[in-house]
């Protein structure tokens, strides 16, 4: 009785409570911070430490000119520094986080506890996605802050003239969020489909780091495969990163327009999350 009238209210409060619950447990999950920490160390190491050493190590900077190195480390280019890491390695870490967050719930039995708590399955799923979304925004924001800190430190140490990033950085950050969202959705999808963390992480890493690169190798021989690789999840992410100024990192591509790449990424987000939610709602939980 009355649930019909209260229906939308119950659904609404169900989502808010679910987001709160999921955020609470993800925030206190060591894996969340270990993965974010690993990513921050990676982005610092590859984005600044090695570049700085190369710059100061003198002549042998391989194929990057001094000017390129300096430009890559400039505080005003920090947006590009954030986005270029995400198509492959950053994306892989985000995918692992999402796959673990969703997949482990099956083994722990926490999905059972979650789905019998009260909210509809859609709301429970929305709670997970909302909380993961917040964590991913935090990850991108932290990457920006850490990169900016490193860039300012390098610029000051080297005595360069530098300026803070302009509004243009927002475009790179927006692209970063979209790329991160796609990898999150991919991880969620794998976690739900495989109903466990191990296979989800394995398949996800394999795809992000191995499969697409192998296909790109094949693409060099076969035209159609090459066009396909441009619009696969990692390919789209790489192209979007390339379109907003990211360069000089594995996985970054410059063969598609930014809008096209963004449309593909948004499409993947919708498809992965839609499929995951549909499965979650429909399937028996035993």
């Amino acid at each position: 009785m009355g649930s019909g009238v209260l229906g939308s209210g119950v659904l609404g409060s169900g989502v808010l409570g679910s987001v709160k619950a999921e955020l609470l447990r993800l925030w206190k999950w060591p894996a969340t911070w270990v993965l974010i920490g690993v990513w921050l160390v990676m982005t610092l190491t590859f984005g600044y430490v090695f570049n700085y050493l190369a710059l100061n190590g003198g002549a042998d900077t391989r194929d990057l000119s001094q000017q390129q190195l300096i430009s890559a480390m400039q505080p005003e280019n920090v947006g590009a520094a954030v986005v270029r890491g995400l198509p492959m390695f950053g994306g892989a870490i985000i995918l692992v986080l999402a796959a673990l967050a969703v997949g482990s719930g099956y083994g722990w039995g926490t999905w059972k506890t979650t789905l019998t708590a009260g909210p509809r399955r859609v709301s429970a799923m929305a709670g997970t996605l909302g909380a993961l979304g917040i964590i991913v925004v935090v990850l991108v924001a932290l990457t920006f802050v850490v990169d900016l800190g490193a860039a300012v430190a390098v610029a000051s140490a080297e005595g360069w003239e530098w300026s803070l990033p302009g509004l243009g950085a927002l475009e790179a950050l927006g692209a970063s969020l979209l790329i991160a969202a796609m990898w999150t959705a991919f991880g969620v999808f794998l976690g739900v489909v495989t109903r466990g963390p191990a296979l989800a992480v394995g398949l996800g890493l394999m795809w992000a780091i191995v499969t697409e690169n192998l296909l790109r190798g094949v693409g060099a021989l076969l035209g159609p495969v090459e066009s396909l690789t441009e619009v696969l999840p990692g390919g789209s992410a790489g192209n979007l990163a390339g379109a907003v100024g990211g360069s000089g990192a594995p996985g970054v591509l410059t063969n598609l327009g930014g809008t096209t790449a963004a449309v593909f990424l948004a499409g993947y987000v919708v498809v992965f999350l839609g499929a995951a939610t549909l499965l979650k709602v429909r399937r028996d939980l035993v």
Partner: peptide
């Protein structure tokens, strides 16, 4: 309805209290 089905399902890394807090949030 409050239920316990075939063994408890909780987050292993959270304390008992935090697990209940999480559950309370879900239950409203």
């Amino acid at each position: 309805v409050g239920s316990l089905i075939e063994g408890p399902g909780f987050y292993p890394y959270l304390s008992g209290r935090d697990n209940l807090r999480v559950h309370a949030a879900r239950r409203g």
